[in-house]
């Protein structure tokens, strides 16, 4: 496990998660009422659950197998842990990402910090939660103001103008233009 590179460790985690989802999904099919048809309502869901379970296990197995191969290529002890994972990473990405033939190499996108991601999601969920009770106009303006201010606090005037204007314009466009009635909430 020492030679598990970040990419492969990611695969192991993904694989385990997929296996669990597959297992839960499969178990849930036991609650589907039995019928006498040749293909019962539970047949397809069961196939899907088992497939996910198998694919998840396959992913884990594949990652472990690859890390073992890397371990064979990089004799332990001769290189520091850092370089081992670096060379392993390159090896793994070649197989895992399966770079297009003739080497079209795409830049990997930057990865944000998990804490930030959780915060952004939390704010989004709060917005989704208050959208109906508070109403579209107020909650949207507040949400946009929060999001833009986290990102660019010094430009609060611009943020405020944008947040209010965007909420109003979208509201008018949807309600009067497209007849999609957005929640009015406490303003109603």
């Amino acid at each position: 496990m020492r030679t598990l590179t970040p990419a492969l460790r990611g695969d192991v985690i993904t694989g385990i998660a997929v296996t669990l989802v597959g297992a839960v999904y499969y178990v849930a099919t036991f609650w589907i009422q039995e019928t006498k048809n040749i293909v019962t309502p539970a047949t397809f869901p069961a196939i899907v659950g088992i497939a996910l379970l198998v694919l998840g296990l396959f992913l884990v197995g594949q990652a472990l197998y690859r890390s073992q191969k890397i371990a064979e290529v990089v004799p332990s002890g001769t290189t520091s842990a850092g370089s081992a994972s670096a060379s392993g990473g390159a090896d793994a990405s070649e197989d895992v990402v399966d770079v297009e033939p003739a080497g079209v190499v795409l830049d990997a996108p930057e990865e944000p910090k998990s804490k930030q991601v959780v915060l952004q999601f939390a704010l989004f969920f709060i917005y989704l939660g208050i959208l109906i009770p508070v109403g579209f106009l107020l909650s949207t303006a507040a949400f946009l103001m929060t999001m833009t201010s986290i990102y660019a606090p010094h430009r609060w005037v611009r943020n405020l103008i944008f947040s209010v204007l965007f909420a109003v314009v979208i509201y008018v466009a949807f309600v009067y233009g497209l007849a999609v009635y957005l929640p009015v909430g406490i303003l109603g």
């Binding site: 930057e110 944000p112 930030q116 991601v117 915060l119 999601f121 999001m147 986290i150 990102y151």
Partner: peptide, 9 residues
């Protein structure tokens, strides 16, 4: 979310 979480990069 990814782009917002990246912040001013």
């Amino acid at each position: 979310i990814r782009n917002l979480a990246l912040g001013r990069g």
